[in-house]
Amino acid sequence: MKKDIALRSYLLESAPTMTEEWYESLDKKSSEGVYTSNDPDVIQRLKAQNYEFHLYISNVFIEDEKSFFESFNTWLNKVAKDQQHLRTPIQSIIKEFMNVRKQHCEYIRRFAELHDDITQQHIDVWNEKVIRVFDIIILKFITEAQEYASNRLRSQQEMIHELSSPVIVIKKDVALLPLVGDIDTARAKMILESTLKQCAEKQISHLYIDLSGVVMIDTMVAHELFQLINALDLIGVKSILSGIRPELATTAMQLGLSFDHIRIKSNLAQALEDDSKIVIASSTH
């Protein structure tokens, strides 16, 4: 145990030097992402992350694996979500983990040379521990970075979908929902949720849903569309459909969906024109 503590102390003392040596060893020409940055702030943060890594990793010689990772996960989560690392190819990051692992094995060898009572068995045990922990770290980092990137991508897609299905207020309590492009089941569900929320927030009573820009629609999406219309009706929003393509009409018929309670116009211009006449007429009574 004394030898383990001594090794940890040696690595802690060597941490600043190890960071500088590691950074100088980076192949700035063939590397990518954060490792090639010329921005002083990025370089400083990269070195600080590496130095902090050395401080954490030195504890692996005096702590059990579970306790080590409970503490180390703080560093792991922070770096995995770092924007510079997210823009760096994962293979480059793995390569640097491996380089730092090699560096630690080298410093274990240097430590052993300073002490006559350190045997090859001690070195082998320490190297084995370093290799095992680094393997786990690499796997954890890849998993954490992938999960964070996937969640961020999902959020961006949700935002894009929400922006691609805006409820546009035309006047007072009248709005337009122009749907464009392919609509799959996931986007259809998002449109339903977003439209209900926007109509409630904007106090809409009449909503034009224009489908002329929808290229393709399947049975599940058609069903979701009618679910939207029914849900709008429940919150007091009357729907007016326009631009229904023959494919949608056919799909609706196959599903047994009825248009009887829905106002339909051949195109948006006609829908807006006819509805304005109805509004004017009703306002005169």
Rank of each mutant, 00 (worst) to 15 (best):
K3C: 00
I5M: 09
L7G: 02
S14I: 06
T19G: 03
K28Q: 07
K29Y: 00
S30F: 08
E32V: 00
V42R: 01
L46W: 10
S58Y: 01
D64A: 09
F68Y: 14
F69L: 03
V79C: 03
V79W: 05
Q83I: 12
Q83S: 14
F97N: 15
Q103A: 02
C105G: 15
R110Y: 06
Q120T: 12
Q121T: 14
E128N: 14
I131P: 01
V133Y: 15
V133A: 14
D135I: 04
I142Y: 02
I142H: 03
E144F: 06
E147I: 04
Y148G: 07
Y148Q: 03
Q157K: 13
M159Q: 13
M159F: 00
P166M: 05
I170T: 04
K172P: 02
L196R: 02
C199T: 13
C199H: 00
H206E: 10
I209M: 15
G213I: 10
T219I: 09
F226E: 10
S242N: 02
S242A: 02
T250F: 08
M253Q: 00
L255W: 01
D260W: 01
I262Q: 01
I264F: 05
N267P: 07
A271Y: 01
L272W: 06
D274I: 02
D275I: 04
H285L: 12
